[in-house]
Structures are given as C-alpha cells and as structure tokens.
Design a binder for these strands. Sequence first.
DNA 1: TGTACATCAGTGAACGCGCGTTCACTGATGTAC
DNA 2: TGTACATCAGTGAACGCGCGTTCACTGATGTAC
Lengths: 194, 194
Amino acid sequence: MATTSRAEHTRARVLDAALRTFAEGGLAGLTIQAIRDRCGVSVGSLYHHFGNRDGIALALYERSLLALLDRIQADALRTRSAKGLIRAMIVAYLDWVEANVDAARFLFAAPAELDPLASPALVQRKRARVLPLAQRALEHAAAGEVASLPPAYYELVVIGQVAETARRWLGGEPIDLGEARTILARTAWRALQP
Amino acid sequence: MATTSRAEHTRARVLDAALRTFAEGGLAGLTIQAIRDRCGVSVGSLYHHFGNRDGIALALYERSLLALLDRIQADALRTRSAKGLIRAMIVAYLDWVEANVDAARFLFAAPAELDPLASPALVQRKRARVLPLAQRALEHAAAGEVASLPPAYYELVVIGQVAETARRWLGGEPIDLGEARTILARTAWRALQP
DNA sequence: TGTACATCAGTGAACGCGCGTTCACTGATGTAC
DNA sequence: TGTACATCAGTGAACGCGCGTTCACTGATGTAC
C-alpha cells in the first residue's frame, strides 16, 4: 500500500457509510453517530479526516458529482456529431442516475444545506469536466450544426430537461426512463436547432 | 373580520417570519425559536396552528408553490397560440422568481427535508393548477402546432430548462434573466416542434 | 338584548434528548542516518 | 540493517448547548336561547 492508502481506505469507508445513512434517513438522519455506527470508525477519526460534519457531506457531494460528470464526459467526448453529443449526454446522465440512485438523490438534496459552490476546489474540478463539453458544443455551433447561443445555455437547455426528469423519477413519479432517453434526446436536439 | 380571520392573520404572520428566517439562516436556521423571535407568536400558538415544525415548513412550501403556479396559470391561459403559451410559462416563471427570491429559494431547498408529495392535499392542489396547462398543450398537439408527446413531457421539457436556469441564478451564477427569457422561450418552443 | 357556555387562540416555563465537537491519549507507519 | 524519532491515523469518554415538544393554563370570540 502506498503512503496515503490507509487514510484513503478509511475515507472511502466513511463516505460509503454516509451515503447509506443518507439513503435511509435523509439529510436529517445524516448524523455523526449514525455514520459512525455504520462503519465502525471512531468519532475522533472522523474529525481527523473530515474536520466536521459538513466536511463529510461535502466530500460525499464531491465524490458523487465528479463520478457523474466523469461518466458524462467519457461518453460524450467519444461522439462526432452534434446530435450524438447531445444524445450521449442525456443517456449517460440517466444511466448514471439509474445505477447510482442514492448518490443521485444526495446530489439533488445536499445543496439545500451545503452550498457546494463555496468550495473553490470543487468549483474548479467541476469546471474542468464541464468546459470540454461546452467547447465541443461551440465547435458544433461554429460548424452550423446547432444554434449559436451564449455558452452557458447549452448546458442549461440539455441538463435542465434531463435533471428535471431525474429529479421527478427519484421523487417517485411514474416516469419510464427508457422512453425518457429517446424523447429527451429528441427534444434537446430540437431545442438547439439553428 | 370573519370567523377564522384572527387565525388566518396569525398563520400568515408566522409564515412571513419563517420565510425571512429561512432567507437569513437557511433550512438549518429555520427553528421554532428563530421564527418565534421574529413574529412574537408564542411557542404554544405555533403548535396550535401548525402541529409541529414540519407543519410550518410544509405550509410555507404550499403557499409559495401555489403562488408560483397561480401566476403561471393566469398568464399562460390568457394565450391563444402554442408559441405564446410556452413563452408565457417561461416569462411568468422567471418573473415570479425574480420578484420572490426568498420563496423561490425555499421551493428549491425544502424538498431536501420535507417530501411535499407526502401531503395528498398539496398534491391535489398542485395537480389542479398543472392540469389545465397540460390540457392546453394537448390541444395544441392535436392541432399539429407542437409535437405529440406523452403528456408529462411538456412540463418536463419546458419547466426543466427554466427551473435549472432559476436554480443557478438563485445560486449566484452570473445569468442575465432578461436574456434567458428570450433564449429559453425559443429553445423550449423549438424543443416541442413536431 | 343579555347571559351562560363552548370552543378557539394564545401563553411561556419546563423538560429531556441527541446532536456536534473536543481533547488527552495510544498505536501504526514512515523517515533519517 | 537497526534504531530513534516524527508524523499520521485512530480512540472514546465527556461536555454543553440548543433543539422540538409538552402542558396546564388564561384570555378572546362565537353561539344558543
């Protein structure tokens, strides 16, 4: 094991336990004691690694968000056409949400008590994953394949639709995510028509 | 004053105080004591009218949500064309958010600890305001003005874009809401093209 | 209209629980020579 | 390779604060006759 490995292992165990704790009791149930009971790590150790309760929540938020963005980026950058790019983003988003229901729920819930944008490190890591996609969108726009918009709107238009869909599905509304992939790929593509 | 008027007045005072309290301290700062300090209503009276803390939060959520939906419905049902309908929904949404920043923030934050769908009365009141709009969308679809989609998607596609925009603007991202009205009205309209 | 009664609205002291956090400490691991 | 030391990782009892909630009560308002 490398130098930091024991610490990394402990941190991962804690975050896994935190996610399961959130899944069962929501944000209000995400207490130091509940996490501790689940992973057997001592209270002092939790503070050693994460500073305080918010530190745990923020670390879990960061791990979840970057996993989602990595997945979207990997799938999206593999495409060539503008239509393929948009479709890949939507499919990757819903794939990830379906495979990581608890983490997705946490991503939607956490900002209510956390303000993740208050962490410059996280903002930067997020930007590093979003910018290449925005870059691609701008190239497609320059080639006349999609409409020319202020850069922020590509994300708003595409992610807005799919995030709202995911949010409601996670909230228990009867939505067929298979059907949603097809329909949203089309509506998002149409939305960006020049 | 009518029979229930004193109670109604007290309830309104409490909800106003709760909203201001939330605006200053977030969900975590929304405590019984903080609300009480702000409006001067006694603890016992709070429990008399709202049952418990969640009852206050739910009542505030309901008041805010219905205000937003009433505003959207009023503006949207005044339109004739499909394009006008979509534009009216987007403009009304952003108008309301801009004029009710704190309430909008609360609407986005509250579900993290509340699950408003657990209240059948609220679900029904919400549905009563959303259904007429969905009905209009279906009529426009039948007339060939917009694409035919499973009914839920009209809301997902239009509201998704504008809600994501509002959420980010409320979160402090530098978004020009005037520009957003124009752009989103166009992207949402295009998204629903047959 | 006046009176007796029932219900609604409001009060505030008191309680106990559980929460986040601290801290003095031990054990494990890495580093220098 | 062995030893001494420094740093990192982990422990768990203890603390105090502030939270939501209860409850016995008073005052205000509405109702019946």
